[in-house]
Amino acid sequence: MARKALCIGINNYPGTGMDLQGCVNDATDWAAELTARGFQVASLLDEQATKAAMMKAMGDLIGKASKGDTLVITFSGHGTYQPDTDGDEVDGLDEALCPYDLQIQGEALTDDEIHTLFLTRKSGVRIVLISDSCHSGTVTRAAKAEKDADSRPRFMPMGNWLPDKLLPKNRAGKVAATMTGPVGTSPLAAACSNALGDLLLSGCKEGPNNFSYDARIKGRFNGAFTHYALKALKSMKPGATYADWHKAITKYLPSASYPQSPQLVGSTGARKGKIFE
């Protein structure tokens, strides 16, 4: 029974004006922790993490796994929405992760595409997806992030990467300022399968005004969620479950500095599974 992981971290988003600062550190930190726990780890950082490279790396990881294997995929970077094109989203939006070449190629990695990749697994392969990104309801282009800011949301408005002709419109036919995204679930939950024992651990709730923060903590940039998730993990006793871990994380978040509520999504059985086993 093999244990393998893919850790993705993207700070640099060319052409969007929305660069981040803590995502590469996140990926490096997750990789170090998983390696110490006996995982074989691959990483994609910044320009390595194009959409094509992300899909190939996920596809190879999942496609080569065998029954009993545990796979962990971590993503730190921007989340976004894009207009749903196949009619499977009630709210008219697909959730998506933002690859390095988001603006260059004009394509995000959608929840539908991730779900399709997950379905290629062999029976008995367990997948844990850890997402330190966020999904808001904003459509219009956001101002360029302040270079020295201590924190910033990890959300990419559609206006920062999609052309106006593809953006959602209001009743007057003009680009909408906001759209109502789904509320109360977690980013990319649709990509995971309860029936197959998948788990999603994410930095915040989904929907308007819920953010995962890129943060400077003790002089170092990290995702606030990643920083505290790893801190909580170090306090876990042998045999601790994912539910135990999530409970420990919520002792740190939300906080006054980082008002985000981490989410654990999965079946009761998966939530009671031992961490990374």
Rank of each mutant, 00 (worst) to 15 (best):
A42D: 14
K251L: 15
D198L: 08
R171V: 11
F225C: 06
P262M: 02
P99Y: 09
A176W: 08
S202E: 00
A5D: 04
T74M: 10
N210A: 11
I8N: 02
P14C: 07
A53T: 09
Y213S: 07
L6V: 05
L20E: 02
S76N: 02
V183R: 13
D94C: 01
I62F: 01
G137E: 07
D84N: 00
V139W: 01
P208R: 12
L167N: 03
L166N: 15
P254A: 08
T85D: 13
M158G: 01
V90G: 09
E47R: 06
Q263K: 11
K165F: 08
I10F: 02
L230R: 02
R141F: 07
G59F: 02
K169C: 06
P238M: 04
G181Q: 11
G9C: 03
G173N: 06
G223Y: 04
T74D: 05
P83M: 07
K251E: 15
A189F: 10
A31P: 11
L230G: 03
I62V: 14
A256T: 13
R152A: 13
M236S: 03
M58V: 14
Y252G: 00
K67F: 04
E206G: 07
K205S: 15
T226P: 11
N12P: 00
S136G: 15
A176F: 09
A232I: 00
H78R: 04
Y258Q: 06
G63H: 02
G106L: 05
D60T: 12
T74P: 06
K56G: 00
G269T: 11
R121Y: 02
G15S: 06
Q103L: 12
I130K: 05
T50L: 03
K165W: 03
Y13V: 05
P99Q: 11
V175R: 08
H115G: 13
T226H: 11
L97D: 02
A229N: 05
I275S: 06
Y13F: 15
P157W: 01
K169G: 00
D164F: 01
A215W: 03
K174I: 05
I217N: 05
T241R: 07
F225W: 04
A57I: 11
F276W: 15
G22E: 07
R126A: 09
E146T: 12
T70N: 10
A143Q: 14
K169D: 00
D214Y: 10
P262F: 07
D46L: 00
K272G: 11
D60G: 01
G203I: 05
L264H: 06
E33T: 14
A57Y: 07
N209S: 12
N194Q: 13
K4T: 14
G22L: 09
L200R: 10
R3H: 13
D86F: 03
G92W: 01
I104S: 11
T35R: 08
A52F: 13
L167A: 03
V125R: 04
A31K: 12
P163K: 08
S212D: 08
N11V: 03
D164H: 08
W161R: 12
A176N: 10
G9K: 03
V24P: 05
C23V: 09
T185D: 11
I104T: 15
A53H: 10
K4G: 01
N222C: 07
R154H: 05
V72S: 02
I217P: 05
S186L: 02
N12E: 14
L200Y: 05
L196Y: 12
P168Y: 00
G22C: 10
V24M: 10
Q48W: 09
Y13P: 09
K165T: 10
R126T: 15
